[in-house]
Design a protein around this nucleic acid. Structure first.
Length: 404
DNA sequence: TGCTGAACCC
């Protein structure tokens, strides 16, 4: 029962509750080494890893490799728990591939790619998930070029030594999903195409993750027809499939196409429901098409029909939309009505609109906000100085440049 | 017991 509850995040509290019950009542069987990894999984959200750790020591299971690896994993998912994670990892008697990956992923999760790489290099044997963990660590932290370099290295190691087809460490679905994401972000269409061919030859196209990653890669590289083709033949279009297609079209200013896909998505209400990401893409489409009223309409729809609380990203889109259309009074009203503090993107969008429409007075106010936000960013200071120049405020130009 | 995708300004 604990195992069942531990398999899904929503039932994790129940798994922990049952575990406590087990401990409280002497008539129930004692926890064994099999149950602890599941219990540790249930600790991810509740930060109770330490308590379970104590229980493991009490029960005498702290030297079981599987339990140890589960401990490393559990600690590595607690915010700020990396020091504990490394301590447990350093005390391991026998370090197998699995605990190395767990530690590598722990580093990657907090953005410490250097240490992840260091550990990866210390490993004597590397399997496919090892490479995947490191490549994913790079792409998840925005190091796309580094991720691609690793992918190339992996492919080199896999194909150069032995004949194709029988070699070890061939990229799998997980690998290509990460690599395709990196291709999209860096615009590496050629490599992306090569990966598509590789997927086809390997015959693992059935996975929805892979299909979505292809849609995203082709979309970001501007091959909307290809993106659409891959999207259409995916028999199990999930939320991300729709979102990726909507986003791809929005990104390349195909507003009508993007909105059409959204409308089609709404028709598939029985299998999929738009989420906050959907509306970011949709609002983005409206912005690029200058469709102010439709933008408003969808913003309202998101709140009323779908009960989605607007995030700062949605406000960013809406303000961008209004700013580009020169509707500054409304844009300022939206900023005032926001339930959170505006961020750099919000002010940046507004400033962009001001520049397009020559509203230097408002631009001055907005640029000041940006400088306040990030005083060490010289770019904002330069923008402010330029605006003062436009306004003929030469003393302020001097002041602004002094601070750069 | 380990590794997977999408998102606001320029």
């Amino acid at each position: 029962m604990i195992t069942a509850y531990a398999s899904h995040p929503t039932t994790h509290p129940s798994a922990l509750e049952l575990f406590r019950h087990m401990l409280r009542f002497p008539t129930t069987p004692r926890p064994n080494h099999f149950i602890f990894p599941h219990v540790l999984k249930s600790c991810y959200e509740s930060r109770s890893t330490g308590l379970v750790h104590a229980q493991i020591i009490k029960s005498g299971f702290e030297q079981y490799p599987v339990v140890q690896t589960a401990l490393v994993d559990s600690y590595s998912r607690v915010l700020g728990g990396l020091r504990c994670t490394r301590m447990v990892f350093d005390e391991l008697f026998e370090r197998n591939v699995v605990c190395f990956i767990t530690m590598v992923s722990g580093y990657a999760r907090v953005g410490d790619v250097d240490n992840a790489l260091r550990l990866f290099n210390e490993m004597e044997e590397r399997d496919v998930p090892c490479w995947n963990a490191l490549i994913a660590g790079c792409t998840q932290n925005g190091l796309f070029n580094q991720g691609i370099e690793l992918f190339r290295r992996m492919v080199g190691v896999a194909f150069d030594r032995e004949g194709e087809g029988q070699c070890k460490n061939k990229p799998n679905q997980v690998t290509v999903v990460c690599a395709l994401s990196a291709c999209g972000h860096t615009g590496m269409l050629q490599l992306g195409r090569w990966i598509h061919g590789y997927i086809y030859k390997s015959g693992f196209m059935l996975n929805s993750f892979v299909s979505n990653a292809l849609v995203d890669m082709y979309g970001k590289c501007g091959r909307l027809g290809q993106a659409r083709k891959v999207f259409e033949i995916n028999p199990e279009k999930g939320l991300t499939s729709w979102n990726s297609m909507i986003n791809s079209l929005a990104l390349h200013r195909r507003s009508d196409g993007s909105i059409a896909i959204f409308e089609e998505m709404v028709e598939h209400a029985s299998s999929v429901r738009p989420d906050e990401v959907t509306f970011i893409g949709l609002l983005n489409a409206c912005t690029h098409g200058g469709l102010v009223d439709q933008g408003y309409y969808y913003f309202e729809m998101m709140i009323r029909e779908y009960g989605i609380e607007p995030q700062i990203e949605h406000y960013g889109c809406l303000i961008d939309l209004l700013g580009r259309a020169g509707r500054f009074d409304e844009a300022i009203e939206v900023v005032k009505g926001m339930s959170m503090e505006p961020d750099e993107v919000v002010w940046g969008s507004l400033l962009n609109g001001c520049k397009v429409h020559g509203r230097n007075d408002l631009a001055e106010f907005t640029a000041k906000k940006l400088v306040e936000f990030d005083p060490h960013n010289g770019g904002y200071g330069i923008m402010l100085a330029n605006i003062y120049g436009e306004l003929g405020k030469w003393d302020e130009v001097f002041e602004a440049e002094k601070d750069l």
